[in-house]
Design a protein around this nucleic acid. Structure first.
Lengths: 228, 228
DNA sequence: CATGATGATTTGATATATCATCCCAGAAAA
DNA sequence: TTTTCTGGGATGATATATCAAATCATCATG
């Protein structure tokens, strides 16, 4: 029961690559070549190249002229930039969403959150990340601001390849530190409590991306020390 | 003395179309066909289609499946959404830029502002709009946040086709209402006064897009009243 | 006069062809 | 052993070919 998402091949490729990227299925630095992907997707290179071009133009992938596109290797500073932007934009979106909240939306969020908990308990990392995405965008969708959603989507794609770094330690720590924070978001959506919802989102973005930036900089220090 | 911007044809097309759109050279509703543009740019349809796809994917152009892309006809509500987003993001960027300001950047802004005044006095609408863009992005560039710049760029493309509506009345009224507000921005960049700079940007976006939304809704009322 | 059918043309999407550049393995030279 | 050179394969960008869907003008029909 899969949605074709679009009859247009290039959009299918974009969507599928996007899901893979958000799900952390690509490792930073990994190269994506047109012909390989075309073979994987069983189509001609044309639609693939268009989808790749779109991702490069959004800054999700990196690609110099006449070279293959690849998942960017972000520095801690670049992660920090993305964190700042995401904090500013997503807290805004979260607040707006809360103001337009409803019991129906809260119910949907709770349902997704329950699914997420099951996937997490089962150790199903792929579903986990997919449901994290679903939850957050079900929230943001309440804003009814398509342009904003598009912007946030693109931002998530940029951090996607690094979300794997949150497993397993950070993911575990969050449940003790912030507990049932998604439930608090659902409650905030019910009560139209913009401040509370925005604050939960703020903490999530701030903590997770700070954690990722720390890991990256620790890794780069180790690499330097290790030499070769 | 023109910069080729990119050796890649699709990027050239994107940049040139972007400049035309930001300069209000297309009228809302106008259709852009691949083959026509390819002829205009003297190239094959391939790079043109890729540039158009990029613009459609950003939401700058509208395009249903298997139909030509066209400049969207925005409703007052959609303008209001763009206004909300631009207010939120660009005030953020303006504040950040001010904090990282310097006399050099202020000098550059003043230079651009002077050029803008000359173009405006001469009634050169195309240069006018181009310099409005230059000024604002010279400001935002001071943030040193490439991802943010990209987002703002895309937002400007979306409002670009409507900037013509600001001429001549609004443009004239601003100079009496807000006077030398670009000079105040330059001064704020010199003093690293984030609040002042953000406030000037806020007023500019708020007033201009409110004005545009009003014109659009007035026009649609007239159309309805006028009948067929 | 309004409406619906129809066929030619336009147009976008995809596949394929072509070309220049890049990349890399392996040979030749230091 | 290391470095430099070189040629073939890989790869991206663009042009072209092909096809299906959409558009439009025309004409027939009510």
């Amino acid at each position: 029961m899969r949605k074709p998402s679009s009859a247009v091949l290039r959009d299918q490729v974009y969507d599928e690559l996007g899901a893979l990227i958000r799900g952390g299925q690509f490792v930073p630095g990994e190269k994506l070549t047109i012909r390989n992907l075309a073979k994987d997707f069983s189509m001609s290179p044309t639609p693939v190249r268009e989808a790749l071009y779109r991702l490069v133009s959004e800054g999700v992938l990196q690609g110099e002229a006449n070279r293959s596109a690849f998942i960017p290797l972000l520095t801690p500073e670049q992660i920090a930039e993305l964190k700042d932007i995401r904090l500013h934009i997503e807290c805004f979106a979260a607040g707006r969403a809360a103001l337009r909240g409803s019991p129906e939306i809260a119910a949907r969020l709770r349902k997704t959150s329950a699914k997420l908990k099951r996937a997490r308990a089962a150790g199903d990392r792929r579903s986990d990340l997919a449901l994290v995405y679903t939850f957050q965008f079900e929230l943001y969708a309440a804003c009814d601001m398509p342009n904003l959603i598009r912007i946030i989507n693109s931002l998530w794609l940029k951090t996607g390849p690094y979300l794997n770094l949150l497993f397993p330690h950070y993911i575990y720590a969050v449940s003790t530190d912030r507990g049932e924070w998604r439930e608090r978001i659902a409650a905030g959506v019910e009560n139209k409590d913009a401040t509370a919802v925005a604050e939960e989102v703020r903490q999530d973005i701030d903590q997770s991306l700070t954690y990722i930036a720390n890991i990256i900089s620790a890794a780069s220090m180790l690499k330097k020390a290790g030499g070769k």
